[in-house]
């Protein structure tokens, strides 16, 4: 059988949108971000770990988190990469804005890391330990895009 006999059929351009519940804790985070430009976390009553993004249960201790705290808005880069390879973002159908800084940011007062864009700036190169702050969108909608990116301070 010739190679041309092996047919490959495309699924076409169909899309299937989803509608995700953000949850009680995530909703409070985005409400604070949108209305007050405030970053909040939540503390585990057993181990004291402060989670940002906030969530209902500390998985390590398996107890319910109750104590809300304000964290940040400044923080530190715990680790990062600079994404350089081009690929289509399945969330938007468009190419991701490569190259971009991908930061794991620990807000002051938090113990987990928040993932977001970090500016690429020759004068202040991205590095582990660098201090950063969020640059907020003027018009905020209650999504993670209410932060445009993180600016490097030093």
């Amino acid at each position: 059988m010739a190679r041309g006999d092996h047919l490959v059929i495309s699924s076409g351009d169909a899309v299937q949108p989803f509608n995700y519940a953000v949850g009680l804790h995530g909703s409070k985070f985005f409400h604070e971000l949108k209305e007050n430009r405030r970053i909040v976390g939540i503390k585990c009553p057993a181990c004291g770990k402060v989670y940002t993004p906030p969530r209902r249960v500390c998985g390590d201790c398996f107890v319910e988190n109750k104590e809300w705290l304000e964290v940040g808005p400044q923080g530190v880069i715990d680790t990062f990469t600079i994404v350089r390879y081009a690929f289509i973002d399945p969330e938007t159908g468009k190419q991701k804005p490569v190259p971009y800084g991908y930061g794991f940011i620990r807000f002051d007062g938090a113990d987990t890391r928040f993932q977001h864009f970090v500016e690429l700036n020759e004068a202040r190169p991205i590095k582990i330990g660098a201090r950063v702050e969020p640059v907020f969108a003027e018009e905020r909608k209650g999504t993670i895009r209410d932060i445009l990116y993180f600016r490097i301070l030093d």
Partner: peptide, 22 residues
Amino acid sequence: DPIWDRLVFAGAIAGLAAEGMA
């Protein structure tokens, strides 16, 4: 996670890169 992970997500490679960088 669609709410918290996907904005900057870049396949398997970026997370591994952040591990390697650290």
